[in-house]
Amino acid sequence: MLISFVRRHTAAFFASLCSVASFSFQCVCATITLSTTTMGHDNVGAYVRSDVRSADVPLIFQNRASWMDVFELIAYLYTSLREQETILEQIMKESSGLIPVDDQDRGLCVLAGT
């Protein structure tokens, strides 16, 4: 998904493109893990994947306090998605030329140099 997004917005700042995150959930038994993937700013062409939150879904009534971890994971995702909206608006403005971008700072030029 990141590659497709970057290809459509190569005129934006490379640093802005590195701020775009792709979110994924992994469910194993009763454990949910939220991960993010971004482009590496220091290592051009590389991806940075990190597990940001994990929660155990309670399966019995006695473990009901574990729901707080699940809700915290959802709240973190919601907040992160709101931040991504502002980043995407910034990238759209950069790509369309509303915000001037130097040629050497464009995503296309930085990625072509790898």
Rank of each mutant, 00 (worst) to 15 (best):
Q26R: 12
I3P: 00
L17M: 15
A65P: 00
A65R: 11
M92V: 07
E72L: 08
L59P: 00
C29I: 08
V110W: 12
D105L: 10
A55K: 02
R49I: 13
D51F: 09
S96K: 11
M1Q: 12
G107L: 03
L111K: 03
I91Q: 10
I74N: 06
T33V: 09
P100T: 05
M1D: 13
Q104F: 15
R82W: 09
V101H: 06
Q104K: 14
L77G: 01
A112G: 06
A75G: 05
I99S: 07
H41Q: 12
A75I: 02
I60P: 01
K93E: 13
S80D: 11
M92R: 12
L2G: 15
S66P: 00
F14S: 00
T37P: 04
D51L: 07
P58V: 04
M68H: 07
A65M: 07
F13D: 11
G107I: 10
S22Y: 06
F71T: 01
S54G: 04
T86A: 13
T86Q: 14
S50I: 05
L17V: 07
L81N: 12
F13Y: 14
R49M: 14
S19D: 14
A55N: 02
P58Q: 01
A21D: 06
F5S: 01
C27W: 02
S4M: 05
L77P: 00
L59N: 06
A55H: 02
S16V: 07
V52I: 03
S24T: 12
S16N: 01
I74C: 12
S22R: 08
T33H: 01
Y76K: 03
Q90P: 03
A55T: 01
F23W: 12
F5E: 04
C29Y: 09
D42C: 04
L34I: 05
L108S: 01
F5H: 03
I87K: 10
S22T: 09
Y78W: 11
V28P: 09
C27D: 02
T10G: 07
R64N: 05
R64L: 02
A46G: 06
F23I: 11
S95N: 15
